[in-house]
């Protein structure tokens, strides 16, 4: 059975979808709510999900390097202690390390 949808019902759904998409509270069915957190990875333990043979994962040279990130659960980054961060915690953007 192939139900035919009228042009009007398509328009209605598209209009509703635009409203839903624009609202910040849109229900997210995203499965991994993570954020990039700079300055919290230990030496050689930074993340980079580009697949095998790519060279960025695990390349950080120092603990808590300011331009190396880890994927962490959303909301936890700025609560994670970072010895190099001017704020004392991980940051969502890369930062210039302070002298330890």
């Amino acid at each position: 059975m192939n139900k035919t949808l009228t042009a009007a019902s398509l328009a209605l759904a598209l209009g509703a979808a635009m409203t839903v998409a624009a609202s910040p509270a849109a229900a997210q069915n995203k499965m991994s709510d993570k954020e990039h957190c700079y300055g919290v990875a230990l030496k050689g333990k930074n993340d980079c999900k580009a697949g095998a043979g790519t060279s960025c994962a695990g390349t950080s040279m120092r603990d808590h390097q300011g331009n190396a990130w880890s994927l962490v659960p959303k909301g936890t980054c700025e609560k994670t202690v970072s010895s190099t961060s001017p704020t004392g915690y991980g940051q969502l953007q890369e930062f210039k390390e302070k002298k330890a």
Partner: peptide, 23 residues
């Protein structure tokens, strides 16, 4: 495309599917 989807799944929610794609 929408017709076939609602034929395949009676619970098909077109607005939700479009919302996800647009968002």
């Amino acid at each position: 495309a929408a017709g076939l989807a609602s034929a395949g799944d009676a619970a098909f929610d077109l607005a939700a599917a479009l919302g996800l794609l647009i968002r």
